[in-house]
Amino acid sequence: SFNTVDEWLEAIKMGQYKESFANAGFTSFDVVSQMMMEDILRVGVTLAGHQKKILNSIQVMRAQMN
């Protein structure tokens, strides 16, 4: 498990989005775990492969939080 959203993004090789997530207010796992595709688009993730990777990881995160 990760301590910060930045660490999580690095771990899934999506570190290039750290600033975008932070600027959009997605700075805690409570918020990130609620993200939908529209949120991912809003933070500027436009590549389908990256969207899928982030969404898949969020689903895993949700499962671990319950």
Rank of each mutant, 00 (worst) to 15 (best):
S1G: 13
S1D: 14
S1T: 14
S1A: 13
S1Y: 14
S1H: 14
F2Y: 14
F2K: 06
F2Q: 06
F2L: 08
N3E: 14
N3R: 13
T4A: 07
T4P: 06
V5M: 03
D6K: 05
W8H: 01
W8K: 00
L9F: 03
L9P: 00
E10Q: 07
E10D: 14
A11V: 08
A11R: 08
A11N: 10
I12V: 04
I12A: 03
I12S: 03
I12F: 04
K13D: 15
K13I: 06
M14D: 00
M14T: 01
M14L: 10
G15S: 12
G15V: 05
G15H: 08
Q16C: 07
Q16H: 06
Y17T: 02
Y17N: 00
Y17F: 04
K18R: 11
K18C: 07
K18F: 05
K18N: 04
K18M: 07
K18A: 12
E19G: 08
S20I: 08
F21R: 00
A22W: 09
A22Y: 14
A22P: 00
N23V: 12
N23G: 08
A24Y: 10
A24T: 05
A24R: 05
F26D: 00
F26E: 01
F26I: 13
F26L: 08
T27G: 07
T27I: 11
T27R: 09
T27A: 07
T27Q: 07
S28G: 07
S28T: 14
S28Y: 04
F29K: 03
F29P: 04
F29H: 03
F29A: 03
D30F: 12
D30T: 10
D30G: 10
V31I: 14
V31R: 15
V31F: 08
V31Q: 14
V31A: 14
V31S: 14
V31C: 09
V32N: 00
V32W: 02
S33N: 07
S33C: 08
M35H: 01
M36T: 15
M36L: 13
M36A: 11
M36Y: 09
M36H: 14
M37E: 10
E38D: 13
E38T: 09
E38C: 08
E38A: 12
E38I: 11
D39H: 05
D39I: 03
D39G: 03
D39N: 03
I40Q: 00
I40K: 00
I40L: 15
I40T: 02
L41G: 04
L41F: 08
R42F: 09
R42I: 09
R42P: 01
R42V: 08
V43T: 06
V43M: 06
V43F: 02
V43S: 05
G44W: 03
V45I: 12
T46F: 10
T46S: 11
T46P: 04
L47I: 15
L47T: 13
A48T: 10
A48D: 13
A48S: 11
G49M: 12
G49P: 14
G49H: 15
G49L: 12
H50L: 03
H50G: 02
H50Q: 04
H50R: 02
Q51D: 02
Q51Y: 05
Q51S: 06
K52H: 11
K52W: 09
K53Y: 13
K53D: 10
I54V: 04
I54R: 00
L55A: 05
L55Q: 05
L55V: 05
L55N: 04
L55W: 15
N56Y: 12
N56V: 12
S57G: 10
S57Y: 11
S57I: 05
S57F: 09
I58K: 02
I58P: 00
I58H: 00
I58N: 01
Q59F: 10
Q59W: 08
V60M: 13
V60P: 04
R62K: 15
R62H: 13
R62C: 09
R62Q: 10
R62T: 08
A63P: 07
Q64M: 12
Q64T: 08
M65N: 07
M65H: 07
N66I: 14
N66V: 13
N66Q: 13
